[in-house]
Write a protein that binds this DNA or RNA. Structure first.
Lengths: 341, 341
DNA sequence: TTAGTTAACTATACCGGTTTAGTTGACGAC
DNA sequence: GTCGTCAACTAAACCGGTATAGTTAACTAA
């Protein structure tokens, strides 16, 4: 019933010790007698004392929160289930640690950098996740300058003082191309992601390399911004040609699904006339028709690993890179041998 | 260059006044001479002083952050673009207010309630958004008990002390049914959302009412959990019947898209053999084939309005309900007159 | 003239923890 | 017996703001 907030002073008084000693006992540091410590903790529990996060924040200069800043085209963000799953994974770790996640969704890169600055200035977070890595990513020097611990989702292209938690997506693309090649395809096109994003170009390079490895001619590639609309446009462009590809490897699922729509619209049958592969294995893949052959990432697992790594970094001052199992090809109904070769 | 953090004491000293006066000047409260106030603010700016959020938090007992707790089946969360857009809207308001958003994604309702408790116990947030309202929602009494300001997304069914920011989705469903009826459909089914969620049953009731209003026999209704998979199953069940509906009204877009997949798979042509309508107008709708007739919500606008209302509530102690423009029917290619009536 | 008000401002307690600089007493070494 | 050391513990400063009680000086009213 008594809702009066109990403070460390109350605990100290009833235990007959000083505030400082209670603090020591709580954070189990040396300098407290064994039985005294037990007694203090017992009393704290009896009184229902939980140390005030705010007070602790002020004296320790930490916030006990982690940050995630997302700078994405709203369209892309909305159709991409990566973040909800990733965040769910992050939360599953944070919840147990009594830490919170501060989320910012910003419209552009300038605002993004500004947001990191103010998160630090306000001491909102003790560390951040860096997603959607870009070439020569400006966030890395910025965070280094700000002294904010971070974890990168994937390995950045330049120097980085931060641990990276990586899911190698190259094998997935390679497997997609090999799968198509084995089915007998040779005119395989690639609807790539944004050239500004590391995973956009990496998938594109993996595609080119896999085509070469399969002994196939260089495949046509169209750049996009990863959005559903761009995927649709790119597909239309590819299929409007006199000689069109018999298979298309998409850099993500939403674009692949849009591609499926375009094919339907043009009367091109999938997989008979056109094979399609996606990337990410979003929930939709299993339920569109035909079900989409794609590459499974595991955003929630990624989130957990990233959170653990970031916490470790903040605690120990350093953390090892983590390499998660590479994304795997999942073969469903959208790929088949080509009709005419 | 000098990164030494400047505090209120520094400002006070250089201005030759007391800390208290600086505080008064900053929060423009009475008791400061006009020219003194200007001078203090000028000096503060010159020194580059920004009051410490942490210190301010401790003395004002506020966190200057808002909270959003999402308790959803991970599958549903991942395929539903509502939250990313909603959050983007919220952020667009918060950014200017130097407030942050604390996000929690939890697996179930118990954890959800627990999360609210700990957000309050830790003083992480000054107010929260309540989404996905349920019947007799346990969160409302809980938040009342905790004394945490909140805004509900939609009007709850019971008593609520909180302002509601509402987008009426009934007209959208009504318009969908009317549109289908006008096209000549009479066997219209409904793939409903979760019966636990208010908007699930509301859309279902709107469907039933609209059917009656159109003078049509009661339509078949299948309950789901709003997930893509459930939408697929429900559609299969509806279409596996001897006498099947000529049109299906879905409670959300992901299920409608899954339904489209099932229809394709069964060789049922949309819209010739089956008309389909969705709800939300997610980005995919325009790009699947045929493009989906759906009802446009505006999650980002909703987010902005909700944030503004919550801020107003926290500032003035009360805020008016807000009724946003009702969702509108957007007619695309997935609806057409029925083949055989 | 003098008490009463009031605006402007100061000093200081306070929010609730952490941390540092002592203080005390027991024990071992010589 | 005395000094040194160490573990256990206390007192008080500190984090950086806000809020309250008090102080001045000017101004008003009787």
């Amino acid at each position: 019933m008594s809702t009066e907030k109990v403070t460390i002073a109350d605990v100290a008084k009833t235990a007959g010790v000083s505030k400082g000693l209670v603090s020591f006992a709580l954070n189990n540091r040396p300098g407290v007698g064994a039985e005294t410590r037990v007694r203090i903790l017992q009393i704290a529990q009896d009184l229902g004392w939980k140390p005030s996060l705010r007070a602790r924040s002020l004296s320790t200069q930490r916030s006990y929160a982690l940050g995630l800043v997302i700078a994405r085209n709203p369209d892309v963000l909305a159709s991409d289930p990566f973040f909800p799953s990733f965040i769910a994974g992050v939360e599953s770790i944070l919840a147990a640690e009594r830490r919170a996640l501060v989320l910012s969704v910003v419209p552009d890169e300038d605002t993004e950098l500004q947001t990191y600055r103010s998160l630090v200035a306000d001491g909102r977070v003790d560390g951040v996740f860096l997603s959607d890595l870009r070439h020569n990513d400006a966030r890395i020097p910025l965070l280094t300058e700000l002294g904010l611990p971070a974890v990168t989702l994937g390995r950045p292209d330049g120097d980085s003082p931060f641990p990276a938690v990586t899911v190698d997506d190259t094998p997935g693309i390679t497997a997609s191309v090999r799968h198509l090649a084995e089915l007998g395809h040779s005119r395989i096109a690639h609807v790539a992601g944004s050239p500004d994003l590391l995973h956009g170009t990496r998938r594109r390079e993996a595609f080119a390399a896999a085509m070469a490895a399969a002994g196939l001619p260089e495949g046509q590639t169209v750049e996009t911004d990863f959005s559903v609309g761009a995927g649709s446009d790119a597909t239309r462009r590819l299929l409007d040609q006199a000689i069109r590809p018999t298979a298309i490897v998409y850099a993500n699922d939403p674009m692949a699904i849009a591609g499926l729509g375009v094919a339907h619209e043009l009367g091109i049958r999938v997989p008979d006339d056109l094979s399609i592969t996606g990337f990410d294995d979003i929930d939709f893949c299993r339920y569109v028709f035909p079900p989409l052959t794609t590459v499974s990432a595991a955003p929630a697992v990624w989130g957990r690993a990233a959170a653990q790594t970031l916490l470790r970094l903040m605690e120990h001052g350093s953390a090892e890179d983590v390499d998660l199992p590479a994304a795997r090809l999942i073969i469903r109904g959208s790929t088949a041998p080509p009709r005419q070769v």
